[in-house]
Amino acid sequence: MLDRDQVLHVARLARLELTHDEVERMSRELSAVLDHIETISELDLESVAPTSHVIEIANALRADEPRPSLSREVALAGAPAVAEEGFEVPTPGS
């Protein structure tokens, strides 16, 4: 149900490098899971509203009052690559 090309497309969206074997396995395993999941396509859900939240709360707003930020040292502490007071990354698109 999920062919090789679809697996590669989804892996690209998810930024996951897959080996040749993983592509094959993913295709097989995800198809099996999706087959099971297909059972919900039989249900008549036309007039049913979707649920994103099981709790009934609205707003939960925060007052616009500042709190102290982290120091730069702490903010950068876990970064794999740091340069010039910031997080270093390969330039996008290069």
């Binding site: 919900i40 396509s41 249900l43 859900l45 049913v48 509203a49 979707p50 649920t51």
Partner: peptide, 11 residues
């Protein structure tokens, strides 16, 4: 989308 509707029915 469908899964969220199933969720409504389960609740």
């Amino acid at each position: 989308g469908r899964a969220q509707r199933v969720r409504t029915k389960i609740a």
